[in-house]
Structures are given as C-alpha cells and as structure tokens.
Simulated assay, not measured.
Amino acid sequence: MSMTALVAPTVADYEASADLASLLVRTTQDDALSVPAETLRLSCKCAHCTRARFDGRFPDAFPGIAITEIGDLGYGLNIAFSDGHNRGIYPKPYLLSLAER
C-alpha cells in the first residue's frame, strides 16, 4: 500500500520585479505568482501598522510604493519599502494567500 502525502505549496524562490512594484514568487509546485508592493504594504501586520490601524492613522493606499529590500528569515520574508517602513515580516503562507487574492 502506498500513501502519498499532500504537501501545501510554499515559497521556493522570490525577487522584486524590475520596476520594484511587485514581489515575484515561485512556489514549490512551480507556480509563478505576483504580489503588488502596495498590497504587501497595506497588508503589513507589524505592531506599528496594527497600532496605526487601531488608531485610525493607517493610510488607505500607498501609491507608487516600491520594494527596496527583501530579507529571507526562513519561515517568511522581511520586506522593506520606499516609504522607509522595514518592520513587516510576511510568513510564507501569508504571502501566498496575498497572491491568491
């Protein structure tokens, strides 16, 4: 009897697009996905952004925002943006959920 385990896809590789306006992601199932930088910035769940949302100070949009740096933490990516924000950590399953929207 053979059992095949179902494994959820995860991030295998990533890079910022040439214009820095999107995060390009390749999954372990060889899917190519793209997440706009503005979607990432609006979806940040760091304490600073969470507090700003709670206080009603979080912007509704980040027009022209760009990805300036990507750090791989193993379980997720730390992404820095052109507005100076660099606190957001995006777990890999969360990144894939943002790409599916």
Rank of each mutant, 00 (worst) to 15 (best):
L6D: 10
A16Q: 13
G76M: 03
Y90F: 15
V11I: 11
L77W: 07
D72I: 03
D31Q: 15
I67Y: 10
K45Y: 00
L42F: 05
T28G: 08
E15L: 09
S34K: 12
V25T: 04
L6Q: 12
F54A: 13
R53W: 08
I70Y: 07
D60L: 12
I70F: 07
A5W: 03
G74A: 08
R53D: 07
G71K: 13
A12C: 02
T10I: 04
S22W: 02
C44I: 06
S97Y: 01
A21L: 06
F58H: 15
T28F: 02
A47Y: 01
R26N: 04
V25E: 04
R101K: 14
Q29C: 02
P91N: 05
Y90H: 05
A32S: 13
G88M: 03
R57E: 15
L95A: 04
G71W: 01
P93I: 04
G71F: 04
V7D: 05
R51Y: 01
H85R: 09
A52C: 03
L95R: 00
S97V: 00
A12L: 14
A18T: 13
F54G: 01
I65L: 11
P36F: 01
S82M: 08
D83H: 05
L95H: 02
F62V: 08
S2F: 11
S17Y: 04
V35W: 01
D60K: 14
A66W: 00
P9N: 11
D31M: 09
P36A: 14
F81D: 11
P91K: 02
S97D: 15
A18K: 13
I89E: 06
L24Q: 12
T68H: 07
P91T: 07
P59D: 11
L96V: 04
G76P: 06
L33P: 07
L23G: 05
A47W: 00
L98R: 02
